[in-house]
């Protein structure tokens, strides 16, 4: 099943001499349970594509479809994009971007609270996810008390909490050593397989490409499917 489909996305920044065409008719698909890599040099348009898929920065033209529902149609939002983001999309970043004044457990529960889910079952869900990602015993700690790898695992737990159909990760291993970086990428694959979530990862790390089911390469706003490993 298609988790996300982007068709003919166009996005331009600036005008005249400063005009940059970040996306030039980009199309892609990520299926449920699939792990997709977006490769490409800086300025190639990877992050623009990620923000378009994440409904943060709608393209001027093109459509984005989430689980069969067209949410951006010819550049126009169809419905409440923020509501779609909080319920259907999880984000993971280069830095963990955990809320510093919340404990690891609370950071995970936050994603549920934003979806109006409060109460004992959310505590259980947060603990279950932290256990699943191997940081169950660190739930009471604040982000500053966790290692980089632990922080990233908590961030993934937070992204998974509302059971999204799509996880978008922007260079999630850039701040980690190769061992921990690989562990995180494998975690994404595990999540995709076990939770049925589509995971789209922007990465520069060629050592972990074997983890991905599909690899796209971007250059100058154009996307090409370079490989399918699975």
């Amino acid at each position: 099943m298609e988790a996300v489909r982007a068709e003919n996305l166009h996005k331009t920044y600036g005008h005249g001499d400063t005009e940059v065409k970040a996306l030039r008719g980009v199309s892609m698909v990520a299926h449920a349970g699939e792990v997709v890599a977006l490769l490409g040099p800086s300025g190639s348009g990877k992050s623009t594509l990620l923000t378009a898929l994440g409904l943060l920065n709608p393209p001027e033209r093109g459509t984005v479809t989430l689980m069969g529902e067209r949410v951006i149609d010819e550049g126009r939002a169809q419905g409440d994009l923020a509501a779609l983001r909080r319920a259907r999309i999880g984000f993971v970043f280069q830095k963990s971007n955990l809320i510093p004044f919340l404990t690891a457990h609370e950071n995970v529960r936050l994603a549920l609270a934003l979806n109006d889910r409060e109460g004992p079952e959310t505590h259980a869900r947060a603990q279950e996810l932290l256990d699943y990602l191997g940081v169950g015993k660190r739930g009471g700690h604040f982000p500053e008390e966790l290692s980089g790898g632990e922080q990233q695992r908590v961030a993934i737990a937070r992204a998974l909490a509302p059971a999204p159909q799509l996880i978008l990760a922007d260079e999630p291993t850039a701040a980690l050593d190769s061992h921990r970086g690989r562990a995180v990428m494998e975690l994404f694959r595990q999540v995709a397989r076990e939770q049925g979530t589509a995971v789209v990862v922007v990465t520069h790390d060629h050592r972990t490409l074997d983890v991905f089911d599909t690899i796209y390469e971007m250059e100058d706003g154009l996307l090409s499917r370079s490989a399918q490993t699975a």
């Binding site: 923020a82 909080r86 319920a87 984000f91 994603a111 934003l114």
Partner: peptide, 16 residues
């Protein structure tokens, strides 16, 4: 600022 940006990215309502 950073935390509020994150909340908004996660889809937090304006009321939050």
């Amino acid at each position: 600022t950073h935390d509020i940006a994150l909340l908004k990215l996660m889809g937090a309502r304006v009321s939050v």
